[in-house]
Amino acid sequence: MKLAISISGKKLSSPFDARFGRAAAFCIVDTETGKWEAFDNPALSASGGAGVQASQFVAEHGAEAVASGAFGPNAFDTLDAANVEMYLAPGNKAHTAAEVLEMFKAGQLPKAEAATHEGHHGGSH
């Protein structure tokens, strides 16, 4: 399955970024073959609606699951509508994307069943 991981660099060895909508980049990795590709997050500079934009982006790139630290309500609704599963990786310690991938494969990441927090209201007003 194709898993998107929010990261702050452009490699599989880059640090995991616990933010979803405002993550610097996404690494999309095939969990079976280990083949991966990294993309800049187009929503990083969005005035508002970063969660929606990032969700559409990973869905369009074929992700079937996402691992991030938190999902706001808009991101949750969008990913859910796109049938992308959401997994929560711990953001309190420094991990690399590769480590998050291993945790995912080992079944250690809990699934997010609802938005993890209120909207940020990044505020383009």
């Binding site: 929503a43 609606g49 929606v52 559409q56 869905a59 969008t78 509508a81 796109a82």
Partner: peptide, 25 residues
């Protein structure tokens, strides 16, 4: 619609179009 929206207030994913009123201008 999603492509032109500067505020990401409308999203099209698969066979669904979502509107986010609080993002809409």
């Amino acid at each position: 619609c999603a492509e032109v929206c500067q505020f990401h207030a409308i999203a099209v994913v698969g066979k669904k179009t979502l509107v986010f009123p609080e993002l809409c201008h």
